[in-house]
């Protein structure tokens, strides 16, 4: 079973990388970019039937730092 784990910064957590990207896009002449935030996409290949609770535990224990990040699991 293929999973796509989207890890994103929580709202309110400052993202210097996103800010730099936003400024770089403006520097390239793209107007109207009102924000940029950088996250991660982690693709997992797990055994069929892996319990949602186990997938959630993988996210909480390692893949995301829930102090600063949210995560969303997408089953392909």
């Amino acid at each position: 079973m293929k999973l796509r784990i989207h890890v994103t910064l929580k709202p309110g957590v400052l993202d210097p990388q996103g800010k730099a990207i936003e400024h770089a896009l403006a520097g390239l002449g793209f107007a109207g970019v009102n924000g940029a935030r950088v996250g991660k996409l982690i693709e997992l290949d797990v055994a069929e039937g892996t319990a949602d609770a186990d997938i959630d535990a993988m996210c909480r224990q390692l893949l995301a730092n829930t102090v600063i990040e949210n995560y969303r699991v997408e089953k392909a």
Partner: peptide, 17 residues
């Protein structure tokens, strides 16, 4: 130690990059 939950908070990329 923050990642291990022994200390609060997190350390992120420096503000000036």
């Amino acid at each position: 130690l923050t990642e291990a939950g022994l200390l609060p908070g997190a350390l992120m990329r420096n503000g000036g990059l």
